[in-house]
Design a protein around this nucleic acid. Structure first.
Lengths: 211, 211
DNA sequence: GCAGATAATGACTCAAAAGTCATTAATATT
DNA sequence: AATATTAATGACTTTTGAGTCATTATCTGC
């Protein structure tokens, strides 16, 4: 009678796969509860391992947190830059293309969970904030800036104050991501219609102009 | 030698004033650290009382949290509705007025701290989210909707898709609030210029239209 | 298929912070 | 001014969960 009990969990040695799996599990738990309220026990359970195993790969909960955030920071706008460079058509088409990409990258994904965590707990991790800002945000901003500049220099866009404030341009996307993360179950946002409204308003404005 | 020591803290009985003071202190700590990472000891210190006193008024940390959030939910857009009703001039002026008010109410204030807390911990407090949504958000949205409707019916605004999506209209303000809360120290947002860019883009759009 | 190496385990320790309550002292009542 | 009432206290108990480590099981190379 060496083996009874309901089910023996078969132990496996997978040195290479573990860190990634732990990060995935951690990210999900952090997104669900925040850093302080996440139990490493739960991360372990989600990853299908014992708590001790986490400590073979990460020296502390915060270390795991930082690793999890870092792992998702870069890839966001990967490749978009190049696509912008190559694009030939009118700038409003380019803008639509890029915004569509941003929405699909940001709303209801790992990235939005990440953003939410940073908004919530960024306080205690100034280095992460700095990293996120310099790796993701500022790159995204200068890409947007290059698009509006393109529009202006081709005579397609007005040379208005938004030209120096590209944050105006993505604001609705950021807001959509946060809205979904917060109110989705209570008052979900109709994304396709929202994107249309965003682009239409951004390009044409509210004012009736041929009056 | 009944009294030595550096300073005797004089004990006071102030049954009525305590709850409010504890809530104020709690809100500040929660805004700073989040729910899980806030120590009731610190809340007590900030309120100038002993930890035990908190438990005479609130049954647990979460109870205090809920009370603190509830206490700040309503008052946000108080009075704005009436001002909108009364307004006589052109709708773009009205919109500027209201947006200005929203910015000053939202960016870098208690309200934005509140928003941040709800974004962070909303998950575990669906009732609070529901309350915030029905008391504050949905009211704000219908007020915005009434403004754009006014614009359309007076022939000032286009009857575009943004008319059914007032979230588009405040998105930059929300984003500014979050941006400041997150990146202020690292890359502060020039608020006045940002507001100008917001309003200009919202009204006129990016496109050059007399081309 | 045996021996050495090491990934994985989970019961354990320990620190921190939530929550309790007998005691103390401020106020109200007579 | 004596007594009764109860707000306030903070030392204490309890709970929780991070982090440790001796042991166990799996894999690798011979």
């Amino acid at each position: 009678m060496t083996e009874s009990g309901p089910d023996l969990p078969p132990r496996r040695r997978r040195k290479d796969a573990r860190p990634g799996e732990i990060i995935d599990a951690g990210l999900k738990e952090f997104a669900l509860n925040g850093l302080a309220a996440t139990r490493l026990e739960d991360v372990a359970k989600r990853a299908g391992i014992a708590k001790g195993t986490i400590y073979r790969y990460f020296s502390s909960k915060e270390d795991l947190f930082v690793a999890a955030i870092r792992s998702r920071i870069v890839l966001s706008i990967e490749g978009v830059d190049a696509a912008v460079e190559r694009f030939e058509g009118p700038t409003d088409e380019l803008l639509k293309l890029v915004l569509g990409r941003i929405y699909s990258e940001f709303v209801g994904t790992d990235t939005s969970a990440l953003m939410r965590i940073l908004i919530a707990e960024g306080n205690r991790f100034p280095d992460l904030i700095k990293l996120y800002h310099s790796e993701a945000i500022s790159k995204g901003m200068s890409m947007l800036k290059s698009i509006v500049d393109r529009g202006v220099s081709r005579g397609e866009f007005r040379d208005g104050p938004a030209i120096t404030e590209p944050r105006i341009i993505i604001a609705p996307a950021i807001m959509a991501a946060i809205w979904q993360a917060t109110f989705q179950s209570h008052d979900p946002l109709p994304i396709d219609r929202f994107i249309d409204a965003h682009i239409d308003t951004l390009l044409n404005g509210l004012l009736e102009n041929d009056q």
